Simulated assay, not measured.
Amino acid sequence: MLSARRLPVIAALAAATALILSGCGAVTPAATPAATPAATAGATAVGTPPPSSALGAADVAKYTFPDGRLSFEYPADWRVELFTGPGEPSLSRTATVLDAKGTEQVTVYSGRIADGVSHPVRRTVFESEPVPGLSRQPAPAAHYAFYVDRMDASPTYRMHLSAGAPPAGDSARLDGIIRIGKEVLVAEIKFIEKPFASDDAAKDWLAGAEGQALKALLLSVSYS
């Protein structure tokens, strides 16, 4: 996923999360929306502060799901493809965000069905903060989170939306399922299997342009 490394991307959500989409669907390339102001969020960073190269208002576009209620902002030179599941209206929708070189960076899913598998981990949290546009949804409050889970000393780096702030220390793997209205939301950055050589490397990536762009995308998710 990391553009600086140009490594192959695993085209899936984090290994233990399965989104159950039954039947056939359709992929619809989304037209590039008009640029809109970037979302503003207060930083509660653990580590290096955001760089001055953070995206400006002119660099951001907004994508809105067909229901007109769920939306997010993303770099204007990236694009969004929408997969719709069966049903009328569709029971599930997955927006895949691809960067300017066509690398899949993020998936944002909304629908009636989602599932997750949990197992014990030891977690180090790099950053976590509430998502302003999801503040009216049922508790626990949706948070943007960037952290590493370790199981048997093997690290799994994750950046996604979580239900509540992810606890540090001994815990369980998070399923990342957020309730929105009568449906659920799952939004996650698509990392390669081992994206960082160390936790310090992960923090350095977060402080760079790509890390900040992906953080801003997750913090911009909104449901009205």
Rank of each mutant, 00 (worst) to 15 (best):
M1I: 11
R6S: 11
L7F: 01
L7S: 13
V9G: 06
A14Q: 07
A18E: 13
L21Y: 07
A26F: 09
P29S: 04
A30P: 06
P33L: 08
T36A: 12
T44H: 10
P49S: 05
P49R: 08
T64D: 05
G68E: 05
S71D: 09
F72E: 00
E73W: 00
E73C: 11
Y74W: 06
W78C: 08
G87Q: 08
T96I: 12
L98H: 13
G102A: 04
T103Q: 08
G111M: 05
I113F: 06
A114Q: 09
H119C: 01
P130D: 04
P130R: 10
G133K: 02
S135W: 01
P138M: 09
A141L: 10
A142F: 00
V148L: 00
D149R: 04
R150D: 01
M151L: 07
S154R: 12
S154I: 14
T156D: 10
R158W: 00
H160M: 14
S162H: 06
G164L: 02
A165W: 04
P167M: 07
A168M: 07
G169Q: 08
D170S: 15
R173I: 06
R173T: 15
L174I: 09
G176Y: 05
I178S: 04
G181K: 11
V184D: 03
A187T: 09
A187Y: 01
I192C: 15
S198L: 05
S198Q: 03
D199C: 00
D199A: 06
L206V: 02
A216W: 00
L219E: 14
S222R: 13
